[in-house]
């Protein structure tokens, strides 16, 4: 049962690391990377906790949810990347303008 909680804690670590980077990093590509890593953290917690069953067969419902989540994440990432390219085209830099430099 140690494995379950070990990986669930790693999942928490990934989520918080990603959230921190999402706030701190200015580059938009890094923000998308951060959101992807946050998502991986959530998936890890879900699948780790699904393994707490007695019989040794993990709960298949969270597994199916995570597969759905992975596919939704890749489509959202593709959309976000195109939007970054648009922002870069119009503002000349892959970042949102700074509050002070407006």
């Amino acid at each position: 049962m140690n494995t379950v909680f070990l990986y669930a804690l790693v999942g928490i670590g990934l989520f918080c690391l990603g959230l921190f980077a999402l706030i701190v990093q200015a580059h938009l590509l890094r923000k998308i990377l951060a959101i992807n890593i946050m998502g991986s953290g959530v998936f890890l917690i879900l699948v780790a906790l699904a393994r707490r069953t007695e019989g040794g067969i993990p709960d298949p419902v969270p597994h199916a949810m995570v597969i759905t989540g992975i596919v939704v994440a890749v489509s959202a990432t593709a959309l976000a990347l195109v939007m970054i390219l648009k922002v870069t085209e119009s503002s000349g830099q892959p970042e949102f303008p700074d509050e002070e430099s407006k």
Binding site: C16, F20, R52, G55, P58, P60
Partner: peptide, 24 residues
């Protein structure tokens, strides 16, 4: 804030029962 969220989530996860059948 991240440390605070992380510790809160850790407490929540560790408080879960070690065995759960879920929907298996």
């Amino acid at each position: 804030i991240m440390l605070w969220i992380a510790s809160g989530l850790t407490i929540a996860i560790l408080a879960l029962p070690p065995h759960a059948t879920g929907l298996t």
